[in-house]
Simulated scan of single mutants.
Amino acid sequence: MAKRRFVWFLFCATAVAIFTLDAVTSVDIPISVLYVTLIMIVLRSGTARDILIAGLTCCILTIASYWKGTGFNITKFNEAGLIDVLISLFAIASVTYLSIKIVHSEASMRKARDQAARTMLNVSINELATSVVHEISQPIGAAAMNNAAARRWLDMTPANFREARAAIDSATLNTQRAESVIQGLRRLSSVSLTDRNVFDVAELMREAIAFLSDEIEQHRIRVSMRLHPNSLLIDGDRTLIQQLLINVINNAIEAMSHDKSENRNLTLLTSASGGLVSIEVQDTGAGISSEHLEQIFDPFYTTKARGLGIGLAISRSIVTSHSGSIQASHNKPTGTIITIRLPTPARSSHG
């Protein structure tokens, strides 16, 4: 609203200046053609209605300026002045028409983009709903079977309390797994930028390593940090980016935790190119097969025996909310590389 008021203030002030210049000078050029610049100003932030009002106003001022040149004598004819007026009116009308067309075209494009986004959202929701049904129905179904088994053990004569207790314990574990899936969904859907600011990515990476220092020491992992010599700044939610780094680094640690060799190396790199800050997290674990490489960011997809497949899905949501990208690739000779690209403050402000 404030920007719109400023545009109209600028429009009025410039219109008065052009009208005055046109009315008091006798230059042999159609100064009123300058009115087209006003319409372009309104185009930057106005609606089709605003542009139409601006165009009509400019036409009225052009005619008024010509009328003043005739001394407000409607019978007095000025051929040169009339030609200038006609040229100006044609220019104003043409720019007004084209500007309105531009506004309508942009509105149509936004509508098409919104429709495409809604379609993709519906597809994603359907896919997620299918995954949710699958992931929750499994533990709930197993819990129901455990409860039925416990009842059968209790109905026996004599009742087998040991087997009934074991079945009830299994039902409890399956119920807890279903609850974990629901909690993961809640975290997955709660990604939003609530506290945006500019910060140094290197500082955040050191904090993430410090946060996971116990796990790193426990699994005897060697950490190598090859950071860009200059400060690389990111504009975003610091807490979310920290969670992103912790998720990705923790996954790398877990990938190497079962490696019996001493080749457990975690390498962190940062670089900058094309308005993007790149973060690489490299591990020397067993790696991921090529056919599964693109799936690791999907909800509920996991290669871990006890994993839920939520951590990397949340990581992708965080990166997407910052207009960035995340991808996985093979490390050589073994392991996985997770590459995160996030826009710098100058680029993200234009995103």
Results as ranks from 00 to 15, higher is better:
294 E>A: 10
317 S>G: 02
109 M>D: 02
70 T>E: 07
247 N>F: 13
231 S>K: 06
282 Q>S: 03
122 N>M: 08
183 Q>P: 06
293 L>A: 11
188 L>F: 09
143 A>H: 07
302 T>M: 06
226 R>M: 13
211 F>G: 01
123 V>Y: 05
197 N>A: 07
103 V>W: 05
135 E>S: 12
52 L>A: 15
190 S>I: 02
231 S>D: 11
37 T>G: 11
349 S>E: 13
80 A>D: 09
8 W>P: 01
306 R>P: 01
71 G>V: 02
287 G>V: 01
247 N>A: 15
9 F>H: 03
53 I>W: 13
275 G>D: 08
149 A>Y: 12
131 S>N: 12
214 D>C: 10
59 C>N: 07
237 D>A: 10
329 S>Y: 03
323 S>H: 08
155 D>N: 11
67 W>M: 03
324 G>D: 08
121 L>I: 01
329 S>P: 06
169 D>T: 12
302 T>V: 00
258 H>Q: 15
156 M>K: 14
191 V>S: 03
321 S>R: 13
302 T>F: 04
348 S>N: 02
290 S>N: 09
333 P>M: 09
178 A>G: 03
4 R>K: 14
106 E>G: 01
118 R>D: 11
202 A>R: 08
84 D>V: 03
185 L>F: 04
117 A>W: 12
105 S>G: 03
324 G>P: 03
301 Y>R: 08
43 L>Y: 04
210 A>L: 12
178 A>D: 03
289 S>Y: 07
